[in-house]
Amino acid sequence: MRVYLPSTLPALARVVAAGELGPAPLNGFAVTPALVEWYASGDTEELEYVALTEAARASLRLLAAGQEEGAARRVVLAAEVPDETVKAGAGLKERAHVRVVEPVPLKLLAAVHVDDPAAVPDVEAAIAALPAADAGDDDARFVVDGVEDHELLWYATQEIPDLLS
């Protein structure tokens, strides 16, 4: 199953150093039955884009929580994990939200999606606006939603060292 795992550039560097993403459980996003039911007219590619977008929002929250230092660029790791390691459903907020119950070895990463450096000012603005947006401020929500105008760039796994340098 393709799972989109929110991350940051420093966290990606740790994944490379450790050889895996963990510890489990890991929050991720995927094409779940709830997402398929909600987005009934979408094909697989559209549904995967929704899951990727949700993971990018979660990456923004990692950046906003200050859990990671470094450039304000959203990062999403796309991994092909065994179906039996993915749990969806009860207790998860978003339709695409899943939990991966085992660490994800680096060899299961299929791609990395990262903001272009040109997106950094908008990502920083979204991070600053996030508390007000969560409190219901429509103007702040507009700023946070606006970061999604930036498409994440796709990187093959063999490009990770160049991305991190």
Results as ranks from 00 to 15, higher is better:
A90M: 05
D83K: 06
V76N: 07
E69D: 15
E69N: 12
A90G: 08
G66N: 09
P82K: 02
Y49N: 05
E54T: 08
A64T: 09
T85C: 07
S59N: 05
G66T: 13
G89H: 10
V81C: 02
L62R: 12
G91C: 09
P82T: 04
R57A: 15
R73Y: 10
L47N: 00
A55S: 11
L77W: 01
A58W: 00
L77M: 14
E45S: 14
R73T: 14
Q67D: 14
Q67K: 13
A88Q: 10
E54P: 02
V86T: 15
V75R: 02
L63M: 10
E80Y: 04
L47A: 01
E45H: 08
Q67I: 11
V50Y: 02
R57E: 14
V76S: 08
E69W: 04
P82R: 03
A71Q: 13
V81I: 03
G91Q: 08
G70N: 05
E68R: 12
A51G: 00
V81Q: 01
R73C: 11
L47H: 00
V76F: 07
A88D: 14
R61S: 13
Y49L: 03
A79V: 10
G91I: 08
E45Q: 12
L52A: 08
E48N: 05
Y49K: 05
A90L: 12
E48P: 01
R73Q: 15
E84D: 14
E48S: 03
R74G: 07
L52W: 03
A88K: 01
R61F: 06
L62C: 07
L63I: 11
V86K: 11
A88R: 03
R73S: 15
V75Y: 02
S59Q: 04
D83E: 15
R57H: 12
E48F: 01
A51K: 00
A78N: 04
T53E: 09
L60I: 10
A88G: 09
Q67N: 14
A58G: 09
A72E: 07
A79K: 05
D83L: 06
G91N: 11
A58F: 03
T85E: 12
E80L: 12
A58N: 02
L62K: 11
E45N: 08
L77V: 15
R61G: 10
A78F: 04
E68W: 05
A64Y: 02
R73I: 13
G70M: 04
A72L: 13
T85G: 06
P82W: 00
E45G: 12
E80M: 08
A64C: 09
L60C: 10
A56Q: 04
A51Y: 00
A51R: 00
L52N: 06
V81D: 01
V86G: 14
D83I: 02
Y49W: 02
L47I: 01
A65K: 10
A72T: 07
A65I: 02
A65M: 11
V81H: 01
R74Q: 10
L47V: 01
L52C: 06
P82H: 03
G70P: 05
V86S: 14
